[in-house]
Design a protein around this nucleic acid. Structure first.
Lengths: 336, 336
DNA sequence: TGCCAATCCTGAAACCTTTCAGAGAAAATC
DNA sequence: GATTTTCTCTGAAAGGTTTCAGGATTGGCA
């Protein structure tokens, strides 16, 4: 590796001058600049970000911790954040927790030792240890995205989850449905409770009694949610409509319908939260509440950069995005 | 931030001793160890990876450069690599090129300034500049995955792409199809040519003449491949089977069928390369050649770690994985 | 008791950069 | 022409760690 020292020697100038030229940190004579630039070119010098980080006390790197990069929802978030990082001159350290709290703790610790300048986090369900570590990780700005963490005042970028499921219930009821099931994730995850809350509120607003059996607990994962859906379908008095509360859930729901021999929307209407590329590629095209996920990712990154630079310094804010209903072909009016 | 110096002072020992205890790099007395551990605990000391990297000359970080994290295929690769990194004590720097050569160059340069210990790369279509930069990036081990780069002897982990499309052609022909179309990506990407090659070979092996109009150039992207498919469907003499050469391509193909009013498999059979979670959630369940993608990601990471540590030091190897045919419901025998 | 070997531990150098006080030269002012 | 100001550039310190030559202490042996 060639260093500043090599460049300086080769150009016949001091190390400090080379640094000055590279970073444009003070006026220099054209001669000096030319000599240095030439030397850099000839030696193929590339600055060492490690040494720079050590000296400067910041790494120009942020950490992204999410549950499952394999889920297109989180992949879209990652993509948006990566674009923002590129534009702002940040590098991106990626960690995938697989929804494993132990791994998440390890990742948080990794962020500390790596001295990232900030963290964007999709928090899992946190116990006491977790909460402690997260608090300590707070030496650096943290922005939550997608999910929140009760009791922590971090900036957060989230969907209006209650509105999302409430809107879907509204739509179902307007279409004549009253027996509406829901497949929902674990209570420890904030969005599960919020989406369930919107569903309950929606039913209440329309004067529909809650049928406990219509609330099927899954895990926001295709497999468990497949089984949760199967329970719904096995009911003596089946729902006529199912609210699927995430894209991975939708995979489980649709798979269950297919396997159990139900046609959608003829036998049962299904609407989901989250849009995805393949939603319109197969039968039926899915009716969904879409999240402005790219915007949300960008927003989270910009928020974090603002905190890091000090441009943003008020109290923590929760930025809430509105979902948009896309009516397609997995739902139909109930006529009987 | 508390430093080694702080810990040393607090424990009443030397800096070197603290380092020794932390890294278990030499025998120390139980007393010393206890004092140091206690001090670390009390001060909440976390080692500084930046300083460590500077001193050691390695960062224990690898870079992953891929075209589109939003594509579940690459997301699966990323996930597998992340798991391998976690197990081996490496951090993962993620870059997303969006199939943009300029961005890819920038990412490569970023890897150099960040002093990553190695790079796993899904190369795009490279021009001269690109090739030069890549050559320079070679100061550090590079492992290619998914795609190769002609003329570079890097380790690579790839699918047997010819076998994948050849196998699909075989399957179609066995099912009675002879008018077989293909939707393929741009020629500059290695896998496109290989998959096209397997298709041509397959036809040849069965004594079927190549119909140029049946070869539809797309981009391995839903949108362009939708239009490529539409061209196939507009043919006077339509193919009875379509070979879709990537998962994103499959989205375009199926969408086009749906929009143009063709039923699959009744009107046209479709088989794709790449399996994906939602392949079995909708109608029709897709017949595909599945890649052992998780294995491939792990393999690439292990290969890279081996190169970095020097455990592996022979000439570059291309590790070829075999695809597996999963017959589902998007294909059917041709009876007429 | 005296000496040597073995065992622990210390302290400073080095990794590559940024930053800044100040040296030296040129330009400006009286 | 002497003095001050301005403009460039230099050189060294500092950032937190690892490493290693050597110092200090202990134990063993004659």
């Amino acid at each position: 590796m060639t260093t500043l020292r090599d460049v300086a020697r080769h150009a016949g100038v001091s190390i400090g001058s080379v640094s000055t030229v590279i970073n444009n940190t003070a006026p220099v004579s054209p001669t000096l600049r030319a000599k240095v630039l030439l030397a850099i070119e000839e030696l193929g010098y590339v600055p060492d970000a490690v040494a720079r980080s050590l000296k400067m006390g910041r790494t120009r790197t942020i950490g992204l911790i999410l549950p499952d990069i394999t889920n297109p929802h989180f992949a879209a978030i990652a993509s948006a954040i990566e674009i923002a990082c590129d534009a702002a001159g940040y590098s991106l350290l990626l960690c995938n927790t697989m929804d494993n709290p132990t791994k998440e703790l390890r990742d948080l610790r990794l962020m500390r030792t790596q001295r990232v300048d900030g963290v964007i986090l999709v928090p899992g369900a946190g116990d006491a240890d977790y909460v402690g570590e997260l608090k300590r990780a707070v030496s650096v700005p943290v922005v939550l995205i997608d999910r929140t963490l009760p009791g922590f005042d971090f900036d957060a970028v989230v969907l209006d989850n209650r509105a999302a499921s409430h809107g879907l219930v509204d739509y179902f009821v307007r279409s004549g449905h009253r027996r509406i099931g829901i497949v929902i994730g674990p209570p420890a995850i904030s969005i599960a409770e919020e989406r369930l809350g919107g569903y309950l509120q929606g039913l209440a607003d329309h004067g529909i009694d809650v049928e406990p059996a219509y609330i099927a607990r899954g895990s926001f994962q295709p497999e468990p949610d497949y089984h949760a859906t199967a329970r719904l379908l096995a009911l003596r008095q089946r729902p006529t409509a199912i609210l699927s509360t995430s894209n991975h859930t939708t995979i489980g729901v649709m798979k269950a319908l297919l396997d159990k021999g139900f046609r959608c929307p003829n036998d049962i209407s299904v609407a989901g939260i989250d849009d995805f590329v393949w939603a319109t590629a197969f039968s039926p095209k899915m009716t969904v509440m879409a999240q402005p996920i790219t915007d949300m990712g960008r927003l989270a990154a910009q928020r974090l950069f603002g905190r890091i630079s000090g441009t943003i310094d008020g109290p923590a804010e929760v930025l809430v995005s509105a979902p948009a209903l896309l009516v397609r072909e997995s739902t139909r009016p109930l006529v009987d």
